[in-house]
Amino acid sequence: MTLKKPDPSTLDLSDVDWQVSTFESGGGGNCIRFGRKGEWILISDSHNPDGPPLVFTKKELEAAILGAKDGQFDHLAGLG
């Protein structure tokens, strides 16, 4: 059974422990940040912490990570 993703504006994000990559992203600590709220994986812009996050399932994040490890998105960053 697939649960309907919540509207990000309905989530209480005050207790989310956000994580930012330790790899440099151009200075100023600006990077994509990741968090978890219950079963949902949240991704947002650390430069705009008050903006709404994108909401994903663990399987969606897993597919993205595996694709990145495989180099499928390297061209987006000018790496391939």
Rank of each mutant, 00 (worst) to 15 (best):
D17V: 15
A77D: 11
A68N: 07
P52T: 10
P52H: 14
G80H: 07
G28I: 09
A68E: 08
G78S: 05
S9Y: 01
F56Y: 13
A64S: 04
K69H: 12
L42I: 03
G78H: 05
Q19L: 11
K69I: 09
F56H: 08
D17K: 15
F23D: 11
P8Q: 09
K5N: 03
K37A: 10
G78N: 05
Q72D: 15
D70G: 14
P8N: 06
T57P: 06
G29V: 09
K37S: 12
R36Y: 02
D70E: 14
L76C: 06
P52C: 05
G80C: 06
P53W: 00
I32W: 00
L13M: 08
L11R: 01
C31Y: 02
K5Q: 05
I65M: 08
P53Y: 02
F23A: 14
L11E: 02
A68D: 05
G67D: 08
I43E: 02
V20W: 00
E39L: 08
R36N: 06
R33A: 06
V55I: 12
L79T: 03
P8F: 04
K58F: 06
R36T: 09
K5W: 01
T22P: 10
D50E: 14
T2W: 05
T10Q: 14
P49M: 10
T2K: 11
P52D: 15
S25G: 15
N30E: 08
V16E: 03
T2G: 06
H75N: 12
T10E: 13
F23R: 14
G67C: 05
D7M: 11
V16T: 11
D74M: 03
G26L: 08
N30Q: 12
N48T: 10
S21P: 01
L54V: 11
V20K: 15
N48G: 00
K69S: 09
F73T: 15
I32Y: 00
I41S: 02
I43G: 03
A77L: 15
L13C: 11
G67I: 07
Q19W: 13
D45S: 08
G80R: 13
L66N: 09
F73L: 13
E60C: 06
L61G: 01
L61H: 01
S9L: 06
A68G: 08
E62V: 04
S44A: 14
S25E: 13
D50W: 03
K59C: 04
I41W: 00
L11Y: 01
S9P: 01
I41A: 07
L79P: 00
P8K: 04
G35E: 02
S46L: 04
K4L: 14
W40V: 05
F73R: 02
S44G: 14
W40E: 02
S44I: 00
K69M: 07
A77G: 10
G78Q: 05
S44Q: 12
M1N: 09
D50N: 12
A68Y: 06
L11N: 03
S25D: 10
D70R: 12
A68S: 09
K58Q: 07
I65E: 04
G29K: 07
